[in-house]
């Protein structure tokens, strides 16, 4: 079943189209890898799919409803995004960050076992309570991944998620992604990491402003 779909989407920057006629469908329980040269528009496409930007042409739909008709809070609960910023408050600890975002997204739902989530992404207990400003790039990325996990979203849009991760981190990321897919998440991964590509159900290539190559992995 299609969760998120882009239909004839176009995106222009400074009067020039970067993306034209992009069609894309993310099915529940699938992992799609998106490759493309630097500047091909991968990050822009992810921003359009996440509803952070409005497409100049075409429409993005979540469960067949155009994003423009979906209320922002509902979108935030369904759709999690990880990009070049971690989406974390640097002065707060990992634990405080995750508690805060849970409170914002699901004010009336009981808190999940956040400490367990952080351990799942490989963050040792002694690191749970110190401000994430002191974290390394890899540790930040792991915490950001925990934020995505804790959000309870079933559509994940990840931009180069293995940035800064060591080998163990990459393996852990692959493991988390595989798990999420099995639980029915629709995942889009913009990446060139050879360790992650084999994991994908299919691989899309972004060039000349649209998705050109579609091959089953």
């Amino acid at each position: 079943m299609t969760r998120l779909a882009a239909e004839a989407v176009g995106w222009a920057v400074a009067g020039r189209f970067v993306l034209v006629d992009v069609d894309l469908a993310l099915a529940a329980g699938s992992l799609t890898a998106l490759t493309g040269e630097n500047g091909a528009g991968k990050s822009s496409l992810l921003a359009l799919l996440a509803g952070s930007r409005k497409p100049a042409r075409g429409v993005v739909k979540l469960d067949d409803v155009p994003l423009a008709d979906i209320d922002a809070a509902h979108l935030a609960r369904r759709l999690a995004r990880l990009d070049h910023t971690p989406g974390l408050y640097l002065e707060l600890s990992a634990l405080e960050n995750l508690k805060l975002f849970h409170g914002l997204l699901h004010p009336s739902r009981p808190e999940p076992a956040i400490a367990a989530l952080l351990e799942r992404v490989g963050l040792a207990r002694r690191d749970h309570d110190r401000p994430v400003r002191g974290f390394s790039r890899g540790m930040l990325q792991r915490t950001a991944l925990a934020r995505v996990l804790a959000s309870g979203a079933d559509v994940w849009l990840l931009d180069e998620p293995s940035t800064g991760l060591d080998r163990a981190g990459s393996a852990l990321l692959a493991d988390v992604l595989d798990d999420a897919r099995r639980q029915g998440a629709a995942i889009l991964l913009a990446t060139h990491d050879p360790a992650l590509l084999p994991l994908a159900d299919r691989q899309l290539h972004l060039a000349h402003g649209h998705v050109v190559a579609t091959e089953a992995a």
Binding site: A72, A73, A76, G87, L88
Partner: peptide, 14 residues
């Protein structure tokens, strides 16, 4: 700084 603006904007109360 940490890319949290949109996360803080998208709440149940707008």
């Amino acid at each position: 700084e940490g890319g949290t603006l949109q996360l803080a904007q998208r709440t149940l109360a707008g």
